[in-house]
């Protein structure tokens, strides 16, 4: 039962990371092809405003690129069963999410739904990483 639960969590990391990579690829495509993403403009929701802001890239590199690297590394560390690396990486992910959410609300005054989905995925990956790490400590 415990192994089944662990397997479910591990596959969840793969699935969430895969979805995250797909979203990042879509956002990168929109960035380089200079096209609009599918996103309603209602109230504070304005993907275009977020994705074209000065905060949408770091040192000239689009933020979704870092997101894609994050999700690839999460998958690799999961495959290699490096629970500590998963935990550290996911903590960095959560801190990045907090920064990006702050920027969206405080500086850009707009929220991007695609970015928010990445944020939710990152948080879920963090929770799974914490659980796997605690589980490893427990079993060792």
């Amino acid at each position: 039962m415990k192994n089944l639960k662990k397997s479910v969590l591990i596959y969840s990391i793969y699935i969430l990371s895969f979805v995250g990579i797909l979203i990042c690829i879509y956002l990168l495509y929109a960035h380089f092809a200079d096209v609009s993403v599918a996103c309603p403009r209602v109230g504070i929701i304005d993907c275009a405003n977020v994705l074209t802001s000065q905060y949408s890239s770091i040192l000239g590199i689009p933020v979704p690129f870092f997101g894609m690297a994050f999700f690839i590394l999460m998958s690799v560390f999961t495959f290699l069963k490096k629970e500590l690396y998963l935990l550290v990486l996911s903590i960095l992910g959560v801190l990045s999410v907090m920064y990006l959410v702050y920027v969206e609300f405080a500086l850009i005054h707009s929220v991007c739904l695609w970015c928010s989905s990445i944020h939710v995925i990152t948080l879920l990956l963090f929770f799974i990483s914490v659980y796997l790490f605690l589980n490893k400590i427990l079993t060792s």
């Binding site: 907090m98 959410v101 405080a106 963090f126």
Partner: peptide, 26 residues
């Protein structure tokens, strides 16, 4: 411990959003 961490992170996210809204120009 896991539950405590989850709750702390969720509260932290809420605090970030609250602070961001307060610090927004408008």
């Amino acid at each position: 411990i896991f539950i405590i961490i989850v709750v702390i992170v969720i509260i932290a996210m809420g605090i970030v959003i609250y602070i961001a809204n307060n610090n927004a120009n408008t």
